[in-house]
């Protein structure tokens, strides 16, 4: 756990890496890990994961088309737009 690591997770989360603040974040993560460590007490090898407490299955819809949004509504919310599209920084591929 070092500053390089903080920089790495910042880059994954697309958040600015702040060198000055990184020690505080390191402390937070360390404390969080201590907390998480508690769970190691419990043997979960035979325990299945539980994501949805209701364990619902097979919720699906029929393949039917419904009206989409008006394009001007989509564009109204977009900070940058052009030619009916949403504009972003040039992407070099």
């Amino acid at each position: 756990m070092d500053k390089g690591y903080i920089e790495y997770i910042c880059s994954l989360a697309k958040l600015e890496y702040d060198e000055e603040n990184s020690d505080r974040i390191i402390e937070k993560i360390k404390a969080f890990d201590v907390y998480a460590e508690k769970l190691a007490d419990i043997d979960t090898n035979d325990i299945k994961p539980l994501v949805n407490v209701n364990e619902t299955i097979n919720v699906m819809r029929e393949d039917a088309v419904m009206p989409s949004l008006e394009r001007n509504i989509i564009l109204e919310n977009a900070p940058e737009k052009l030619y009916g599209c949403i504009k972003v920084s040039k992407i070099i591929e």
């Binding site: 599209c85 949403i86 504009k87 920084s89 040039k90 992407i91």
Partner: peptide, 9 residues
């Protein structure tokens, strides 16, 4: 040489 790309969703 535009400095942007456009997105169609």
């Amino acid at each position: 040489d535009e400095d942007y790309s456009l997105v169609d969703f």
